[in-house]
Amino acid sequence: MKKLCSILLVMAMTASMLMGCGGKGQDSDKEGKKETTKQEQKADPVEVNVMALKGPTAMGMVKFMNDSDEGTLEDDNTYQFQIAASADEVTPKLVQGEADIAAVPANLASVLYNNTKGKVQVLAINTLGVLYIVESGDTVQSAADLKGKTIYASGKGSTPEYALSYILSSNGIDPASDVKIEWKSEHSECVAALANDPNGIAMLPEPFVTTAQTKNPNIRVALDLTEEWDKIQEGKEEKSALLTGVVVARTDFVKENPEAVESFLDNYEESVEYVNENTQEAAKLVGKYGIVTEEVAKTALPKCNITFVDGDDMKEQLSGYLAVLSEQNPKSIGGALPKDDFYYSR
């Protein structure tokens, strides 16, 4: 009997060990399947079509663009960049799906969101205030001095127009009757008009201020519109800042390619940091891509207020800016303030 019990005990222990080994094998198989699933779930590389305006928005991307062209980016996506002279070239391509991501004027992002019923999201702020009033003479010392003047400007229907209108009206000047604004289709046309008019006054962003000064050393910056905006905000409980540009994406593209969007933002942020910290090298790239000449870029880059702001900070700054524009003219932001889904959250 004792012998039989011993045999049964050994058989039971052996079975237990075999079951244990079998369990470990199953766990190992499960872990292997999980790892395989993770690899399978990794998004396939996609082609990302990007557009930027000829100015600070494109200047912040030059390192990104160059790395893409040289094949030194760490992600596997393919990027196609296009630099446009005006927002009118960008809008239809974004709406029609020919562009996936684009750098546009801050207010235009809101207009697109409203006009497409939420088919556009803002990813990040890329440019702060870069607008200036310049002249050859010495007639403008304050915003009030613009009354009765003729101002060459471009950017009608976008940030430049509404920023200028806000500053004029806040200083007691009616933009419709107290000044004459001659709208040009591109900033370069304003530079040309200024060169042909010794007494001319123009509203220009960098780097076009520097371009104008290289053609006429007598041109001086009379007003920094960012400073003028800040003066108006003094004493207000809810303050806003003057913003120039943002990066937007098609909502469908964001939903379908979340990893590609994250990779784009990582690359763009690194590019902005590089441009702000390496003026000489960045200027060469700006010249390489024909945005402005290398010499102009060397002087202009530190004054272009190129930045990268995303997440909650982006939402706070941009929503405040759009609220100011809405109070002035609801049409400037597409008729209504965007809802929360307008702001991309990382």
Rank of each mutant, 00 (worst) to 15 (best):
N114Y: 00
Q39P: 05
Q39D: 15
E31V: 15
P92L: 01
V50I: 08
Q26Y: 14
I101V: 11
S110Y: 01
E47Y: 10
I7G: 06
A99L: 06
E74N: 09
M65A: 10
G71L: 03
V48S: 09
G118I: 03
K30M: 07
S28V: 00
E35G: 08
I101E: 06
N107R: 01
D69L: 15
E70A: 12
G55K: 06
A124V: 00
L73A: 05
P105Y: 08
A12L: 11
A102W: 05
C5I: 10
D67Y: 09
Q96D: 15
D44V: 04
G32D: 01
A99E: 05
V120I: 14
A15Y: 06
M13I: 12
L112W: 02
T91S: 10
I83D: 01
N49L: 03
N107A: 09
G97Q: 06
T72N: 10
Q121S: 12
E31P: 01
K24C: 12
S110D: 13
F81A: 08
V48D: 14
K117T: 10
S28K: 13
A85E: 11
M19A: 13
A103E: 12
D88Y: 02
S110T: 11
S86E: 02
D75P: 07
F64H: 09
I7F: 15
V104H: 00
Q96L: 08
A106N: 12
L94E: 09
D67I: 01
V62W: 00
S16N: 06
V62L: 00
E89D: 13
K119E: 15
D76K: 13
M19H: 10
K63N: 12
T91N: 12
C5Y: 01
A52L: 15
A102K: 03
P92D: 00
L108F: 06
D100R: 03
T72L: 11
Q96M: 10
Q82W: 01
E70C: 05
T14I: 06
K30R: 13
S110C: 01
K30S: 07
K34L: 15
A52H: 04
M13F: 05
T116S: 14
A87T: 06
F81T: 03
I83C: 04
I7Q: 11
A106W: 01
A52I: 04
A84D: 11
K63P: 04
T72D: 12
D100P: 09
S68M: 02
G118S: 12
T57I: 05
P105K: 03
L53M: 13
L9N: 14
C21I: 04
A124P: 00
N77S: 07
K30Q: 07
V90R: 06
D100K: 10
N114H: 00
M17W: 03
Q41K: 15
C21E: 13
V50H: 07
T14E: 07
V10D: 02
D27P: 02
A106T: 10
A12I: 04
T14S: 13
G97D: 12
G97P: 09
V111M: 01
P92V: 01
N49G: 06
A103R: 07
T72E: 13
S86W: 03
Y79D: 04
